[in-house]
Design a protein around this nucleic acid. Structure first.
Lengths: 173, 173
DNA sequence: TATTGTTATACTCTATAACTATA
DNA sequence: TATAGTTATAGAGTATAACAATA
């Protein structure tokens, strides 16, 4: 909501921004003060999330998997035989929006919809062999490029503490 | 990307989900296993961010301010006299998208665009008196309802550690 | 020629209602 | 009657190109 994906350099329109000013009302034309914004958890959380997703996409460029697609593959692998409603709702994806997502994954032969014999309204979801292979490669990329970078930045212990706090917020806030 | 704003209850379609099964292939029809998903920082980060924004909106319902609008008011208050480009780019908002946002805030008499005398292309942004008053009330709501809730959940020290780590990710990742 | 604010536009993500086929 | 998957659609949020006024 607050933040977009592109950063932009600040201008600094005058030739010598450090020199004398015309009058006292003119502010110094350099970086703005974030002020209380840098203490707003929501603001920092959003900016951090965008950075993490951006990095995830870069790490996954060769496999063309978005964070959402990766989460679907992971969940289907862990819970084979569940239907669309169960997978979607666990991920917080609304069923209507899940249809196009699955169409995409299925068209790439990463997962398959199988009509359930128990309840012929349901589509059971499973990973294809290719889906399993791609997911295995994706996990490796995430571990060696994405998570490794985070561990490097924060340290293993801090990364785990961060995850624990975010989980608490996600489940209890 | 991964997560929507509404949660949904899982079904549990059979009358007695704990009792005997038809055959060994049928899975237990209760909660799904998140598996590695709960270790994915991006996934947890996104879900936490949605919860925090949701709570922010609830706390701000009386003032009808979104996180993005709050961030604009905060930044304009801290940096009066800056133009649209400077405020927008600092927040990561693209200039074209900032126009409608400002139209909204200006129509509610919370901030004003003033044609700069130095550079008549620029619109200098300032908070109106009403804007200052509303922002003051917003800050109070955020402190007493929103941040207080977070401190209650995490503890003051943890909340600060969380903020520090997220800031590091936002700026260095 | 370059920049500011703006318009137009498009694409993604999210959300709701309603249809169909099954139960 | 209710549920699963689907379609259609609408609204945010985000992205790019291009224009008028001004520098």
């Amino acid at each position: 909501m607050t933040v977009s994906k592109t950063a932009e350099k600040s201008s600094g329109k005058s030739a010598d921004p450090a020199k004398g000013r015309k009058d006292a009302t003119e502010v110094q034309s350099e970086a703005l003060q974030l002020g209380e914004l840098s203490e707003q958890l929501g603001y920092v959380l959003k900016r951090a999330q965008l950075k993490v997703f951006e990095n995830f996409l870069r790490c996954m460029a060769s496999l063309q998997l978005t964070p959402a697609q990766f989460s679907v593959l992971l969940l289907v692998e862990k819970n084979p035989g569940r239907n669309q409603t169960e997978i979607a709702s666990t991920l917080g994806i609304l069923r209507p929006n899940f249809v196009a997502m699955l169409d995409n994954l299925e068209s790439r032969d990463l997962c398959a919809r199988i009509r359930s014999t128990n309840d012929r309204r349901s589509h059971i979801l499973v990973l294809t062999d290719k889906g399993k292979a791609v997911l295995a490669r994706a996990k490796k990329l995430v571990a060696t490029k994405h998570e490794a970078r985070l561990n490097e930045l924060l340290g293993q212990a801090n990364r785990e503490a961060l995850l624990a706090m975010l989980s608490k917020i996600a489940s209890e806030f």
